[in-house]
Computed example of a mutant assay.
Amino acid sequence: MAGHRIFSTSFASIYPHYVAKVERKGHRVDELHRVITWLTGYDEAGLQRVLDDEVDMATFFERAPRMNPHASLITGVICGHRVEEIEDPLMQRIRYLDKLVDEVARGKKMSSILRQPTATAP
């Protein structure tokens, strides 16, 4: 079964667009790396490795050291779709990352971007 063409697009070819987006809005690459790390578990060396190896998006997420268990708390619209309603798990992960990058670019507080579950009352 063939997937969306973004699945076979290299992360290295998309990454500069993420960088440009956050920098154009006056934010820093380290903020971008922080959300990528939060979502995927890649550290700086691991991120550099996937960029150097030009792995595709499917492999980028397959090899992610640890997808954040709170990623499902990412909600909202990206590319005209509600991320929480995307059925394909890989496409949903890609859109989670897109949503986080958008939030960094918009200047949302990092504490809000890096979702944490709310504590339930006893």
Rank of each mutant, 00 (worst) to 15 (best):
G107D: 00
T120M: 05
D43L: 05
D53K: 10
E103Y: 06
K99S: 13
E103D: 14
M67S: 05
I36P: 13
G107W: 00
E103R: 15
V55I: 09
P69H: 13
G41N: 11
V35W: 04
D56G: 07
H27A: 09
S13D: 13
E23L: 05
D98T: 02
I94R: 08
I113G: 15
K25T: 11
V35A: 12
F61N: 12
H4E: 09
L90P: 14
C79R: 15
L39R: 08
H70P: 05
F61H: 11
M67G: 07
L51G: 10
V50Y: 01
G26F: 09
A2N: 13
A12V: 02
M57W: 00
R115W: 05
H33P: 01
A20W: 03
R82M: 06
A119I: 08
T59C: 04
G41V: 03
H70V: 04
S13G: 06
G3Y: 10
E44K: 09
G76T: 01
A119S: 15
S8Q: 13
Q116D: 12
D52R: 12
E44Q: 07
S112V: 02
D43W: 07
K99L: 08
L39G: 04
D98K: 05
H33G: 03
D43G: 14
E31H: 10
M91D: 14
F7V: 04
D30W: 04
R49W: 01
E85N: 15
I113Y: 14
Y42P: 07
V50C: 03
L39W: 04
E31P: 01
C79W: 06
D53N: 06
G3E: 12
L97H: 14
R93P: 06
P16R: 07
T118R: 15
T9W: 02
P65K: 12
T37V: 02
D53G: 01
Q92N: 13
I14D: 10
T75R: 15
L90C: 11
I94K: 11
P16E: 05
D56R: 02
G80R: 08
K25V: 03
P122E: 01
L47C: 03
L47Q: 06
S13A: 10
G41A: 09
I86T: 11
C79D: 14
L32M: 09
